[in-house]
Design a protein around this nucleic acid. Sequence first.
DNA 1: CATCCTATGAGACGAGTTGACTCATAGGCG
DNA 2: CGCCTATGAGTCAACTCGTCTCATAGGATG
Lengths: 189, 189
Amino acid sequence: MPAETDPRFLRSREAILHAARELLLEKGPAAVTHAPVAERAGVGRATVYRHWPRPELLLVEAMATVPMPFFAEPTVPTRDWLRRELTAMAHQLDLDDVRAVATTLANTALWDEHMEARRAQFAGVLSERVTAALDDAQHRGELTLAIPGRNAAAALIGPLYYRSTIEHSPADPGLIESAIAALGSWTTD
Amino acid sequence: MPAETDPRFLRSREAILHAARELLLEKGPAAVTHAPVAERAGVGRATVYRHWPRPELLLVEAMATVPMPFFAEPTVPTRDWLRRELTAMAHQLDLDDVRAVATTLANTALWDEHMEARRAQFAGVLSERVTAALDDAQHRGELTLAIPGRNAAAALIGPLYYRSTIEHSPADPGLIESAIAALGSWTTD
DNA sequence: CATCCTATGAGACGAGTTGACTCATAGGCG
DNA sequence: CGCCTATGAGTCAACTCGTCTCATAGGATG
């Protein structure tokens, strides 16, 4: 692996990642192989091999370029924050690239250890952020949880995720409201 | 395409489908190609081509051999039926093959029209069965829906689906109970 | 500007895969 | 028994894959 600061190296790296992401979105994960990526990136095939000897890690890193900044920086009241975050997530899941990344993550993780590591990290981050915010809401008296905290992420995100990846329809606000209500009882002050 | 009744034809067909399913479970959808399927099925490579000129349809049909009989034959009371069906579904989603089929369906459908057709059919069947049962429960007075019927399948199945495919954990009964409770208010008679 | 370093592009290469084809064989039918 | 046809084995050209070589040029250093 060459120097990390060489502008030529960084330029190639960015072009390759960009091309790999485009190919993932257009033709699926199976299309992210060295030759098509090189051609689209306007880069020699050997260069792609030098950067990523195996295409699995290229796919993982290309997927990481799709931003998925969910549930960062909780605000108060938690209920409004959840509504905003879930609405944003539903909007993101309507975009082809986010949907492609989410389903590729879930599917490829079953057989590829690198993707599995990313899935675990992604799931862990979402779960931690949600449970931390809900714990805080509970301590502040805004919420009385009716379900264990470990179930909260699945209860909130699951319906949107199913709606997007299985039903291929946009989530409507009612789905979000009922998921939030299912967490427990909220004070309305 | 040869005769549909020839025992030799049917034998080859079954062996190929069986091998394709095994390969899908062990190595993922990308591994379902003619040569490995033929070898594992103990069948000539040309025979696989004769049955399925393109591997996409082979993958679709191989996935169809994994039974997913969810929400068939509603019984009364609907709440107990839902609990049973969702528990069965959660149990199924813990099995590798069902998880593999579900995520492969969601992912491959984004780029393959045949898989997309199966996804739409699958989502439609689940949604119809769930809404029909809930409509009936509502007419009988067992349930007052708090959400539109079109959201019911996502609200019920989504959390289990997320728990299985993203969090890779078994669903616990609390997740199922809260999803059922989120539908609306149930009479307890 | 001159010099060195090194990432790159182009291409060659063998190994393996793909999809199409041929043909003798044998399984299953009347 | 005798016909029909699905099959297995094999051939074949085209293509892909992963590796390697080498001349070139982009960029740091003086």
